[in-house]
Amino acid sequence: MATFIEKLGNLDRRVIFVLMALAVIIPLALRMNLPIPIDKGPSKNLFDAIDALPEGSRVLISFDYDPSTMPELQPMAVALSQHLMTRDIRIVSLALWPMGVSLGNEALSAVGDSLGKEEYVDWVNLGYKIGGGVLIVRMGSDIQSVFPTDYGGNPVDEMPVMQGVNKLGDLDMIISLSAGDPGIETWIMMAGDRYNIAVGGGCTAVSAPQLYPYLSTGQLIGLLGGLKGAGDYETMVRIGVENPPPGIAIAGMAAQSVAHLVIMLFIIIGNIAYLSEKKRKGGAK
């Protein structure tokens, strides 16, 4: 006869779905906040690298994602833009993914407006061009030939933000917010290694493990992995800021932690139930 724990092991999957939904909804509805400790790690490395850039530096942000990965990558876009703009660093942005243009614009214009930064002076969105790696190689010799106008059709050579930015080598750092290919790896391959430019990035949690090797070789200066990375960065950007705006990723991290606890609980129950059933049927060694 099946024990209670074995019955738990064969629980209807819909019960698990309901519990998972509750594990996410309750912390969000209660606006639960759990501490996000920041110590040394890829998120901190990226933050420190940006913090070390002098005022007036030029950083390229590539929005290489679409709405399907927005919950993870958009908070990073907002937090990075806040950090760069508060440090008076000029932002040149583009997208290797078509939908990245509007998502990038949303983040840059919202942060820019809140900090009193002007489009074309402090930041610009060059838009999307197809080509991935080939496009990056061409930008290595002449950005204006690839992007003669920004996303709105305005000539880039007349924009103050683009003064002195003719090729990738004129930039101080490249940051790719990437949901896949083309993305961070393409930038490392075609810009970082080829033109010796510092490349940092933010990615979905799914793709984070495959990018970690680039951190240990120094090909990537820092990495924000998934919602956790976004939460880390939001936390660091808020340090020392009076009445900071609510962090989207920070709000999600409590729900994330509770959901992980529920998943771990079910993994443990499932394994105990499996072993118990195996033992009862005489299959255990």
Binding site: S68, A205, G226, K228, Q256
Partner: peptide, 11 residues
Amino acid sequence: YTVMARISLLI
């Protein structure tokens, strides 16, 4: 990490 990504989308 994959679990974390899927939960993030749900969040």
